[in-house]
């Protein structure tokens, strides 16, 4: 099912989606810097201007040698979504066999999860903003989701490497960020263990 469209194994395509203020751009830069630390070339797109004023924000991140800043629908290996509606708005980006990691406290519509399953895609949901609030701030929801993705082995990095980049990039709130990464990671490991590849698992 997972036809990689003539791409090499080292390549990964990510869509990162959320709402203005949720740290979509920070998450993108965090992942991009982690890739650089692993000597992987990256190119990504950022959203600026009008779209930053509380609107939907989505970035495309291409790891592994492409010069194209945009990813087509149906070709993303990973979707990281910090918001339920933004996850749905971007779910069609997911490639057959891809993985979506979504911050939400309710389940996705049945017909969509069924179609994703038929395409061999995996969907993992976690109420990441609640986990973030438990750490004292919703601002680290993005990092919880990234940790969750790592726990599911959905990103081409080891946890240690991401932890190092996160430590470098967040001089303020570093401890909370590192905790958020750990919380997300543990939730990911737990659900990865308890569920077979099957859409709709809540952590």
């Amino acid at each position: 099912m997972d036809s990689r469209g003539g791409r090499s194994r080292a390549e990964a395509r990510l869509i990162i989606a959320g709402v203005g203020g949720q740290g979509v751009v920070f998450a993108t830069r965090l992942l991009a810097h982690t890739a650089i630390a692993l000597d992987l070339p990256v190119i990504a797109s950022e959203t600026h201007g009008m779209s930053q004023r509380g609107g939907s924000v989505v970035t495309h991140l291409h790891i592994g040698g492409s010069q194209a800043p945009l990813i087509g629908r149906g070709t993303a290996d990973v979707l990281l979504a910090f918001d339920h509606d933004e996850a749905l708005r971007n779910i069609a980006f997911l490639a057959p066999g891809g993985t979506a990691l979504i911050n939400t406290d309710h389940s996705l519509p049945q017909d969509i999860t069924a179609l994703l399953e038929r395409r061999g895609a995996q969907v993992h949901t976690l109420h990441a903003s609640r986990r973030a609030m438990e750490l004292g701030t919703a601002a680290v929801t993005n990092v919880v989701v990234i940790g969750f993705a790592l726990g599911h082995h959905a990103l081409p990095f080891p946890l240690e490497r991401l932890r190092a980049t996160l430590s470098d990039l967040s001089p303020r709130g570093r401890e909370t960020n590192l905790q958020a990464l750990e919380v997300g990671y543990q939730a990911g490991v737990a659900t990865a263990r308890s569920t077979r590849p099957h859409p709709g698992a809540e952590g």
Partner: peptide, 22 residues
């Protein structure tokens, strides 16, 4: 194409309110 138009149709049918900049 690996794009699934049916997926987009299901999403469109949800009628998610656009998040316009404010």
């Amino acid at each position: 194409s690996r794009f699934e138009p049916e997926m987009q149709r299901l999403v469109d049918d949800l009628g998610l309110p656009p998040r316009r900049p404010r």
